[in-house]
């Protein structure tokens, strides 16, 4: 029965590679955006904090699908190349940047108060205090939720299929159109996503086990 699936597997896997590429790039960009937004939100001046909060509110309250279509319809007017990949990178990074910011903000806040005391008591302040004592601990605390957000991001890339990016989901639809075996093909697509995401979650669990949990 799974003959169709096996036959179309190479094509689906090519789509999966696009998914992985898109995910990797967006994860990096989203993390960068997230760190900046978290710092702006927690330690920024009025303007920085305001911008960060508006950004976060918009991303959290708007469906990513709306943003995907908006990029598709609107970007040409601003002169940006309307290739699906570009739109996809832009939207996915911006959207998940908000989730990343929450991950980093929560991690910073989870560093125990006593660590701030100890650093300050030794005469540290500002960038020393943050760089030597606080941020290294925050990064370790951020590990597992970071991985979870990456998993969400990978799943989110499936939405970019609606504007024509031939990643895993769109590859699946194309194959189904050709072969008319939706259960098999989408089942296979789901399986490939499962392998990717579950592997990530296993990395997350390994990270959690390895991390020395303080106190």
């Amino acid at each position: 029965m799974p003959n169709v699936l096996i036959a179309s597997l190479p094509y689906l896997l090519r789509g999966a590679i696009v998914t992985l590429e898109l995910s990797a790039v967006c994860a990096l960009l989203a993390s960068a955006i997230g760190i900046i937004a978290a710092l702006a939100q927690s330690y920024g001046g009025l303007v920085a904090r305001g911008i960060a909060l508006i950004y976060l509110y918009l991303m959290r309250g708007t469906p990513m699908l709306v943003m995907v279509f908006a990029a598709y319809y609107l970007l040409p007017y601003v002169g940006i190349n309307v290739e699906p990949m570009t739109g996809g990178v832009l939207v996915v990074s911006l959207y998940y940047g908000a989730f990343m910011s929450e991950v980093f903000r929560a991690a910073l806040a989870s560093v125990p108060r006593g660590q701030w005391d100890a650093g300050r008591a030794l005469g540290m302040h500002g960038r020393w205090l943050m760089g030597i004592v606080i941020v290294p601990q925050a990064l370790r605390l951020a590990g597992p939720p970071f991985i979870n957000t990456c998993i969400m991001l990978v799943k989110g890339t499936s939405l970019v299929s609606v504007i024509g990016l031939v990643e895993l989901t769109l590859s699946g639809r194309e194959v189904v159109e050709r072969t008319l075996a939706p259960f098999q093909v989408f089942g296979g697509v789901a399986l490939i996503y499962f392998v990717i995401c579950y592997s990530l979650s296993l990395c997350g669990k390994a990270l959690e086990a390895r991390l020395p949990h303080a106190h």
């Binding site: 005391d117 100890a118 008591a121 005469g123 030597i132 004592v133 020395p212 106190h215």
Partner: peptide, 21 residues
């Protein structure tokens, strides 16, 4: 300025607060 003064004053805490990393 405050940090400079703190550098000349040592403190030990009830919860030790060693840097775990």
């Amino acid at each position: 300025e405050i940090a400079k003064a703190r550098a000349a004053i040592g403190m030990a805490f009830q919860s030790f607060n060693l840097f775990p990393h």
